[in-house]
């Protein structure tokens, strides 16, 4: 099937599944651009039109609501307060996330979303409050977090060595996770020369490489195109269904229906 035929079939499938015309058109434009730039076969890049359309619609609408079993509490933050100088950033904030849940932290710019995540990761000390984590923990920052002059494979080896992974296993695990985010050729470009979106994929792979029980992600989709965004949520659902507890900082309100728990810091801080 040619690219145009594949796109035509995708458009038809998106409309058949009830996606609004303007959203369907936007998806087609993004996918066409990706296929043109990458010169990839559409089946190889996205699978069948039906399957990809279902994934897109699900990501935009959210999965059919169902009662999913959740496990024990993996992260409990209570009474978190933090002040920077005269500015009270967080005031008595709490968050509980269980195994098999995705929690979204939302709020206006400057309301303390990243600060709360860094407190949960143990990177910043709050003025008050405690955080209890059951299991292993991993954190992906909003930016930086990589070594500009190292290759992606070298990042995988570096992170994997902390858990005792051999180099081959670490590289294989890293490349596998990268492929799940649509990043199939990690290549020989150092991290500092990757595009913003690809560098953020590297950040994400580094934080999931060690299979942590609790995953803290600060705006992980920065620079992602729509295809990568869909892949990200599919990967997060897979991790959630595998029993991970995931906390995502986001300012995109249309992601709220993807999360099991929502903490709006604008309200929480009063």
């Amino acid at each position: 099937m040619s690219v145009e035929s594949w796109l035509w079939a995708l458009g038809g499938e998106l409309r058949r599944q009830g996606l609004a015309e303007e959203h369907a058109a936007a998806v087609i434009v993004d996918v066409r651009t990706h296929l043109r730039d990458s010169a990839e076969d559409p089946y190889r890049a996205f699978g069948t039109p039906e399957r990809y359309a279902a994934a897109v619609v699900e990501s935009l609408r959210g999965p059919v609501s169902q009662v999913r079993p959740v496990g024990p509490v993996r992260l409990r933050a209570e009474g978190i307060s933090k002040r920077y100088g005269r500015r009270q950033v967080l005031r008595g904030v709490g968050l509980t996330v269980q195994s098999g849940q995705i929690a979204a932290i939302v709020g206006a710019n400057g309301c303390g979303k990243s600060t709360l995540l860094r407190i949960c990761a143990g990177l910043v000390t709050p003025d008050a409050g405690t955080v209890c984590v059951h299991g292993t923990l991993s954190y992906s920052p909003q930016e930086d977090g990589t070594v500009p002059h190292l290759l992606p494979d070298e990042h995988f080896v570096l992170v994997g060595a902390g858990q005792g992974l051999s180099r081959d296993r670490a590289r294989a695990a890293g490349r596998d996770r990268a492929a799940q985010l649509g990043w199939r050729d990690v290549g020989t470009t150092t991290a500092g020369r990757l595009s913003g979106g690809t560098r953020q994929k590297l950040n994400l792979v580094m934080s999931t490489l060690t299979e942590p029980d609790v995953l803290l992600l600060d705006e992980p989709y920065q620079g992602f195109d729509r295809g990568a965004y869909v892949n990200l949520w599919q990967e997060l659902w897979r991790l959630r269904d595998a029993g991970k507890a995931i906390v995502v900082v986001t300012h995109l309100l249309n992601e709220l229906d993807q999360a099991d728990v929502v903490l709006d810091l604008t309200e929480a801080n009063g």
């Binding site: 991993s138 920052p141 902390g162």
Partner: peptide
């Protein structure tokens, strides 16, 4: 200085 952002992550990774 170049390692400032990655070292906390490596600490969480087990180092």
């Amino acid at each position: 200085i170049g390692a400032r952002s990655i070292e906390p992550r490596l600490r969480l990774a087990g180092y």
